[in-house]
Design a binder for these strands. Structure first.
Length: 618
DNA sequence: ATAGGGTTAG
């Protein structure tokens, strides 16, 4: 037998390396991986691209970009695959390690490596400038991926995210064979840019839809506050027997949150439990938020307490929910518990803690946590935190101190910060400051009708009627329409909407009879219409029905008609409840012996036995 | 032999 030694063939590394590479897959921690890594090096595989890509890929899955980069830099001849793997690792990571994706890509080209079909999707999604997208688009074509759906879908996505609808649409329209992902990307692209109707046109053109497509459209309606249409689409989806997955569940629960539709929200939550849909942290947060914002704190706490693992967002959400209900002390207690459980609070946590203080009049506590946030947790105050402090102080009547915070904040105050001060000026009757702040706010947000209304209110409360008229004229000249106020109440699975003086409801006649009866019975216990809510006078259709037929009163009467004694009425209002209705609600709760929970734009009012949970502090 | 796109929180 002749010896084979002269032509001994080394088996390819992937044959010999298989066991160790498979071992890499079974690692569960980085420490384990590092051991395997050193074993790989000892086996002489340090130049084996395949082995190294497995290692890098593992780092990628464990958000260890830093280590991935270190490994990459030791590889003598990385191939396209390795470049792709590292790009992906960077894209997935939250690491702060400085890394220039585009430099890396050009380096790859300099090594005479050609990008393949896996290169562009990641690269395109890593763009931070519009120009980069344009350049990469050219490369996609140049390297022959002009018909590659993966590359093109990513281009569509990124063009939309830079607000370039035309570029995105052009790519989509020219695609030879767009797939379901392309269509869905276009729908959510339009959605994020607020083009709901265009999104819907595209949706209707789709011949094959799956859960993701339905969800994209439902989410589109939800994100653009068109909850009713989200509900309708959901019904249709159920008829067509499309799977209700966790994404659709989450979107619909948000829709319920938007409308205050507790019953449907409960049903979907029940569905999630029945069908064993995985309750991940996002879905859990959505559910908790729904219960909080639909006025059911007990249920929210129950879900929250039942979570096996609570992430920051779950804590944030629950703390925010308590704040919304004016339960400042409870919110602070929960925050303390969060710290004990060693969950690291973030900027949002403190927004919620400070909001809780503001809504409960906990001025000293608010000041304390404002300092605490930076000193103990290293969270630098952002605009929102200053906004909370302004709100906290101003609401408590310390307008001068609020003004100080405003002047001292390092960034320029935006409309929401000034708006907080403005609202407080109204409550505490500081007309001088109110006027100057009001004018600033209007100019900062010239399209926001609420700001004009607030300014007009300030003028009205000191009898400056000429200026009130001036504000109204300014709105007309600029074509700003007051956002119409409406209230909703869910009954027998339907969401009923009411506008002031509206007569569209099928039971309008009975409702108005009930309103008259109700007004009469609260008059007997001292109700006097309070015309202070002059803002409603700014709206044509409300002028005929000042105060007495505000949407919340109509919704309550409908609720009284349709529910049994002792049942709680839950009303959702899109604007803030006015002073007159607030007073009326207190009396109704007493005369009719009903709990009434009103969620307005800012917070909850829980009326019971003649009193409100906000203690008139809102 | 290894990698890929769209949909959900505060």
């Amino acid at each position: 037998m002749s010896s084979t030694s002269c032509c001994q063939v080394q088996p390819p590394s992937y044959v010999t390396a298989t066991p160790i590479l498979r071992a890499v897959e079974t690692c569960s921690t980085m420490a384990e991986l590092k051991q395997h890594h050193s074993l790989i090096l000892r086996l002489g595989l340090s130049t084996d691209n395949h082995a190294m890509s497995r290692v890098i890929n593992f780092c990628s899955k464990h958000d260890q970009f830093h280590y991935a980069l270190k490994v990459f830099n030791t590889i003598p001849n990385p191939d396209t695959f390795l470049y792709n793997t590292l790009l992906k690792s960077h894209f997935n990571s939250h690491s702060q390690t400085p890394f220039n994706v585009f430099l890396f890509y050009s380096h790859m080209l300099e090594q005479s490596l050609t990008p393949n079909s896996f290169t562009f999707p990641t690269l395109i999604r890593s763009c931070s400038f519009y120009k980069q997208v344009k350049q990469l688009h050219a490369h996609v074509i140049k390297f022959g991926f002009g018909s590659d759906v993966f590359a093109l879908n990513n281009l569509i996505h990124v063009y939309f995210s830079f607000g370039s609808l035309d570029d995105a649409r052009k790519v989509f329209d020219k695609m030879p064979e767009p797939n379901i992902v392309s269509w869905t990307t276009v729908i959510s692209g339009y959605s994020n840019c607020g083009h709901v109707d265009e999104a819907f046109r595209v949706f209707e053109l789709m011949s094959h839809k799956n859960s993701a497509s339905w969800n994209a459209m439902i989410a589109c309606f939800v994100q653009n506050n068109r909850f009713k249409e989200a509900f309708d689409l959901f019904k249709q989806m159920r008829v067509e027997k499309v799977e209700l997955d966790k994404f659709v569940a989450a979107s619909m629960i948000s829709a319920c949150t938007g409308l205050g539709a507790l019953e449907l929200g409960k049903w979907i939550h029940g569905y999630v439990e029945r069908t064993g849909i995985e309750l991940d942290s996002k879905l859990a947060t959505t559910i908790i938020d729904m219960y909080c914002k639909c006025g059911c704190l007990e249920k929210a706490l129950q879900v929250f307490n039942g979570l096996p693992r609570k992430g920051v967002s779950s804590w944030n959400c629950m703390i925010g929910g308590l704040a919304l209900h004016g339960k400042g002390e409870d919110a602070i207690r929960l925050f303390r518990e969060m710290e004990r459980e060693m969950v690291v609070p973030d900027a949002i946590t403190f927004v919620n803690v400070l909001t809780a203080c503001a809504h409960s009049g906990l001025v000293e506590e608010g000041r304390y946590y404002f300092r605490y946030m930076t000193e103990v947790h290293g969270v630098e105050p952002a605009k929102e935190h200053y906004g909370c402090m302004v709100d906290l102080l101003a609401r408590a009547g310390r307008l001068d101190e609020a003004k100080e915070v405003l002047d001292e904040m390092p960034m320029s105050p935006d409309a929401s910060v000034l708006g907080a001060l403005l609202g407080a000026c109204k409550i505490h009757g500081n007309l001088e400051l109110g006027e100057s702040v009001g004018k600033r706010v209007v100019e900062l947000e010239p399209g926001n009708s609420g700001r004009y209304v607030m300014l007009a209110n300030i003028y009205a409360s000191c009898g400056k009627w000429n200026q009130v008229a001036g504000v109204r004229k300014m709105m007309d000249d600029r074509g700003v329409k007051k956002e119409p106020g409406f209230s909703m109440i869910e009954m027998e699975g339907n969401v009923n909407e009411f506008v002031a003086g509206g007569r569209d409801h099928p039971l309008a006649k009975e409702i108005y009879v009930k309103v008259d009866e109700m007004l009469e019975s609260i008059r007997l216990v001292g109700y006097v219409p309070d015309p202070d809510g002059i803002l409603h006078d700014l709206v044509e259709e409300e002028r005929e029905n000042p105060l007495l037929h505000h949407s919340e009163k109509l919704a309550i009467c409908y609720g009284l008609l349709k529910s049994k004694r002792g049942e709680t009425l839950r009303i959702t209002k899109n604007l803030r409840v006015c002073k007159d209705c607030h007073q009326a609600c207190k009396l109704i709760s007493k005369v009719y012996d009903r709990d009434i929970i009103v969620r307005d734009r800012n917070r909850f009012h829980h009326f019971s036995n003649g009193e409100c949970s906000c203690k008139d502090y809102w």
